[in-house]
Design a protein around this nucleic acid. Structure first.
Lengths: 222, 222
DNA sequence: GTCATCATGTAAGCCGTTACATGATTGC
DNA sequence: GCAATCATGTAACGGCTTACATGATGAC
């Protein structure tokens, strides 16, 4: 999943590892913070497989290599580096700026499509689902919905079986859990409804160019 | 964390591995299902360290070794096994029933006290927190509360920094996440309030039964 | 007798972590 | 110069999963 996060962030802008990590934490939330010990090897793998490449740290390129970190010191640092004409950009052990390749973009799509749908994976996938076509995005939401619905049913069954012989903490835990799951389900339903509306009425070209395929064969699959 | 779940379940009743796993899934929810590939080695480790021991599969012992699984076939199987006087209880490759030792009970307590408080760990700890003293339990809740509160603050800060330049999915994700975290916090506050009430007025020694504490001191919390 | 289920275990491997090593840059 | 931060990497290890191997038991 770490490759998904990396590619998802790089898809928006070129970054070096250190900044990349910060962006990943920002985007996917603190709960899925990753460590450098897994980030750098992952970047090396992705580079070896051709999904990302190192790009020169162009001072003002097409993808804004100085990404307004918000951190004062970092910005200052970048500024100085630029003033010094980026000369240590790849000396001995300088910073390496990575960019996504077109192969990488395909890998990103296939990672978004892969069937793993646990809590964490889904979270990350939603964060980058804008890179999916509306149809595939809808499918992603619906598969997750099915899974959460299953969990809910299973939980209800278990509750019936174990009856009321639970201590108060376990009962409170279960109740809170159950409510959370129901809220998740409601959220997914909202996402799905919005996505369906988008698919049904693709009036404006939304983002990357969604397929406005709208065959009038009368098929309205629910 | 798997040892915590094992000890927590065994603390209530002796079980063999297969049943143990089912109970763990029931108690901690399907989200933290564990596999046999981790269960059996963990049991071996716990046995080696003296936290659990194998007990003879006594047909009707003090801890109910035939625990009403609810599964018809399983119950029938147990029944037959009992009728056959449990003789294959430890032949070649029969079932091994485990029980917690007093050393294991101490290990359980220390595991419940350990400072790891991520989502999953806390979930499991709450499931077995009845084995903590009220004071330690309160501390557990409060430490978790502090952590969740920190997350909330961090998320708010990040949101301010990244501003509104987010696509709709990311925005929805963040919003849903934020609400979930706030609900978690509210739940923790309820747990803490109840625990404080319990500490303040330890009228009845509450144990396995639900506290019918209904003091007419005018205090109607919640 | 054969199949499904119950039951225990081992081995390989994945995915991530922590801890450590290294070095550039900059503020003071 | 020195400390803090930025920045990249490696090594060892941990915990859990999947896949596999084995075998008992009972239903039919």
């Amino acid at each position: 999943m770490i490759e998904l996060a990396i590619l998802g962030v790089l898809r928006e802008q070129d970054l070096h590892g250190y900044e990349l990590r910060k962006r990943i934490c920002e985007v996917t939330g603190a709960r899925s913070a990753i460590s450098f010990g897994s980030l750098y090897p992952a970047l090396a793998r992705l580079e070896a497989s051709g999904s990302v490449k190192t790009v020169e740290a162009i001072p003002s390129g097409p993808t804004k290599p100085a990404p307004m970190t918000g951190s004062l010191s970092a910005e200052t640092s970048m500024f100085r580096a630029r003033r010094r004409t980026v000369k240590p950009a790849r000396g001995g052990r300088g910073r390496k700026v990575y960019g996504i390749t077109s192969a990488g973009e395909h890998v990103l799509e296939s990672l978004l499509d892969d069937p793993t749908l646990d809590d964490k994976s889904f979270h990350i996938k939603v964060a980058f689902c804008r890179y999916l076509t509306p149809a595939r995005r809808l499918e992603l939401f619906e598969r997750r919905r099915a899974r959460v619905a299953d969990q809910l049913i299973a939980a209800r069954t278990t509750r019936r079986r174990t009856g009321e012989r639970l201590d108060s903490y376990l009962r409170s835990l279960r109740e809170h859990d159950h409510e959370s799951t129901e809220r998740d389900l409601a959220w997914l339903d909202r996402l799905i409804a919005e996505e369906r509306a988008l698919l049904a009425a693709p009036a404006e070209p939304v983002d990357e160019g969604p397929p406005p395929v709208l065959d009038p064969t009368g098929g309205s699959p629910s």
